[in-house]
Design a protein around this nucleic acid. Structure first.
Lengths: 115, 115
DNA sequence: CTCGAATCTGGAGCGCGCTCCAGGTCAAGA
DNA sequence: TCTTGACCTGGAGCGCGCTCCAGATTCGAG
């Protein structure tokens, strides 16, 4: 199976090498397989997962939130517990969207006013 | 004209007294009028403005962003410059909404999967 | 085999956005 | 007048999310 060096994984994901190691330390990704010499070998699955993490980070979730997300998806949990957790997270995101909507409305008012 | 003490302004806005003073130091609000003895006296206008700041903070804008916002609205700028700035800010917020949408979609997929 | 680039680890440093603290001032009630 | 509590200032401290650094190790090209 073909794997990626840290530099390649960084290029593919747009996440810095330092941050990749940080995420791994924090348990958000991996643990990533190592070569005999101890170098990291990122798989396609790793890259995909990093993409998910990035997606949630971009959406404003904190490291702790993501740790929770990882925990729920990785460990064995009854489906209903997972669904409950996921719905809760979704609701939180909706709150954020609402906050953004309010701010955009204020901007729109100002834009109208100055136009 | 009736004014509010720091404690009252904090109650009304939901922003801590420390944070109100911090915002003032950073130029996001005020400068707030003072009593003879040097205590702050918040006006209704101040409270309203604090509401705006809070709205944008909740939407995820940084202190520096808000300083820019304040500068554009307070100082004399040609309307078209203000509008350009406001539109730019609005576009940034749309980006954030899009990021949230992507994250919510991922959650929805997982929810569907586990349901 | 040698050299240089890439990677490793542990830990320090940094910018942000507050939050807290010490030490002093002001103001309203008993 | 005295006390008590809210408020003042300047500055330190903190949690987050990286980011950078030193010093050692590994690996591929020549």
């Amino acid at each position: 199976m073909t794997t990626l060096t840290p530099a390649a994984a960084s290029d593919r994901t747009g996440v810095s090498i330092d941050t990749l190691r940080y995420y791994e330390r924090e348990g958000l990704i991996g643990p990533v397989r190592r070569s005999v010499g101890g170098r990291r070998q990122y798989t396609e699955d790793d890259v995909f997962w990093i993409g998910l993490v990035t997606c949630f980070r971009d959406a404003g979730l904190g490291i702790a939130d993501l740790r929770g997300f990882v925990a729920i998806l990785r460990a064995e949990h009854p489906p209903q517990e997972r669904v409950a957790f996921l719905r809760e997270r979704r609701a939180a995101l909706e709150q954020r969207v609402a906050a953004l909507g309010r701010a955009m409305q204020v901007l729109d008012e100002k834009i109208t006013y100055y136009s």
